[in-house]
Simulated scan of single mutants.
Amino acid sequence: MVQSTAPTGSAPKAPAASRRGLILSIAAAAVVLAGIALDTKVVHIGSDADVRQQAFSPDGYGQTEFPRIRDAVTAKAGDAAEVAAAIAADKDAAIAKYGTPASTGAIMAVRVTGTAGEPKAGIYPLAAEGLPEGVAVRVQTGPAINGTDLRDAPGDIAFGKFKNQIEYQNAGAGINRAMKAEVLDKIDATNLTGKTVEVVGAFRLINPKNWLITPVEVSVK
């Protein structure tokens, strides 16, 4: 009888095809990982990219932006009588001196002192000296502050800085709320009738004889 001479205890060798398949799988995985790495953007905490990826906060935006808007409006504000006369004489020149061009009526910065009348929906008429006959001045005090006059006053808060129209509108509302907290909540805005009020603020120049001022500063005398 012939005995097998193959050494005992030897493991069978893996087929060459299996080894090639393993090598190809590893290579394919390496290619996928390299692709993921190339397509991945590293965002450092606190960087501009990190801020953009966070959810937009209208109130946070308003609190950040309102102080510089207040300063810009205050710096450009003219006396109400001077602004009214300038608008009547040359509207474009008046806008260049006291205002900021906007898509729907320029935003004018003004300072006015007058006696507050009876309010309607939180809007007080002001009887101010020196204004041309027929010019009506009103100031809104809330509780709701409407419009985007403060947002548009500096001229550099553009739609392109926001994700969409809703976010752009919400930015204006956030600025209005920040103003209300900083300015109007510190006075008794429900009890101004008959009092002398000094207002610094902005209004949209649509009707030159009807100003609705959104304030950035209010003092009651």
Score class of each variant (00 low, 15 high):
121 A>R: 14
101 P>K: 00
120 K>Y: 11
115 T>D: 10
55 A>V: 09
108 M>E: 03
25 S>E: 14
90 D>W: 04
35 G>D: 08
121 A>Y: 12
25 S>M: 15
78 G>Y: 08
59 D>F: 09
114 G>F: 03
66 F>G: 02
27 A>T: 09
95 I>L: 05
102 A>V: 02
84 A>T: 06
108 M>Y: 00
95 I>H: 04
124 Y>K: 01
55 A>Y: 13
97 K>Y: 03
45 I>G: 15
111 R>M: 11
93 A>L: 02
65 E>D: 13
61 Y>R: 02
129 E>H: 07
123 I>M: 08
92 D>L: 04
58 P>L: 02
60 G>R: 04
27 A>S: 02
106 A>E: 00
22 L>A: 13
102 A>Q: 05
88 A>H: 11
105 G>H: 05
44 H>L: 15
28 A>G: 01
29 A>W: 02
90 D>T: 03
73 V>Y: 03
75 A>L: 00
43 V>E: 01
91 K>R: 14
32 V>H: 06
118 E>D: 05
81 A>S: 08
31 V>A: 12
91 K>V: 13
31 V>E: 02
116 A>V: 09
21 G>Y: 14
26 I>K: 13
27 A>Q: 03
39 D>P: 09
35 G>F: 06
96 A>Y: 05
65 E>W: 13
78 G>T: 08
23 I>W: 12
77 A>P: 11
92 D>M: 10
85 A>M: 04
82 E>H: 11
122 G>C: 00
68 R>S: 10
71 D>T: 09
72 A>I: 10
107 I>Y: 08
50 D>Y: 11
71 D>F: 03
48 D>T: 06
82 E>A: 12
83 V>Q: 05
123 I>H: 12
112 V>E: 03
111 R>G: 12
91 K>S: 14
127 A>K: 14
101 P>D: 05
21 G>I: 13
75 A>V: 07
71 D>S: 03
66 F>Y: 11
128 A>S: 05
98 Y>W: 07
37 A>I: 11
86 A>L: 04
118 E>K: 10
121 A>L: 11
118 E>L: 10
89 A>Y: 03
58 P>F: 04
87 I>Q: 03
95 I>G: 01
71 D>Y: 10
119 P>W: 00
79 D>T: 07
62 G>K: 03
103 S>W: 11
69 I>V: 08
84 A>N: 05
59 D>G: 12
124 Y>A: 01
39 D>M: 15
52 R>Y: 11
31 V>R: 04
89 A>S: 14
101 P>Q: 01
66 F>K: 01
51 V>A: 15
50 D>G: 09
53 Q>P: 00
50 D>E: 06
77 A>H: 00
127 A>M: 09
45 I>C: 14
106 A>Y: 01
84 A>Q: 04
127 A>V: 13
126 L>P: 05
99 G>V: 02
100 T>R: 07
30 A>P: 07
99 G>Q: 01
56 F>I: 08
54 Q>W: 03
98 Y>T: 00
100 T>S: 01
37 A>G: 15
36 I>A: 12
39 D>C: 14
106 A>N: 05
76 K>E: 09
54 Q>M: 09
130 G>C: 01
90 D>H: 09
71 D>G: 10
88 A>F: 07
32 V>M: 10
39 D>A: 15
